[in-house]
Amino acid sequence: MMDFGFGISRSSTVNLDSVALENFTRLQALEPDALKCISCGSCTATCPAGKFSGMSLRKVIHNLQRGREKEAVEMLRGCMLCGKCSMVCPRAINTRHLIMSIQKIYGEEAR
């Protein structure tokens, strides 16, 4: 292959056709409320870990639905399970329970 000094970069477009949602379907069965998230960001704004580790439950839920499972699980490592997010969630999602379920399905032990 010839080196021209530049390369072809892949499109950053997320192709929803090829996002594998098997794991998310399993999560949905355990946590139907996960789908109620409206990305308001309250959880992220209040998260004590977020300020230091980049942890954002909003992004975790969103990433899981777009097939970015690795990023989501990596991000969850910052969670201290303090439960502050469940206090602020306007859609009354049991966020701590949700986080545990995510770990069950996507976490290292699950692999």
Binding site: D17, H62, N63, R66
Partner: peptide
């Protein structure tokens, strides 16, 4: 997908 800041197609 403005919540992710990424283009999507389907």
């Amino acid at each position: 997908d403005t919540l992710a800041g990424r283009p999507v197609k389907v």
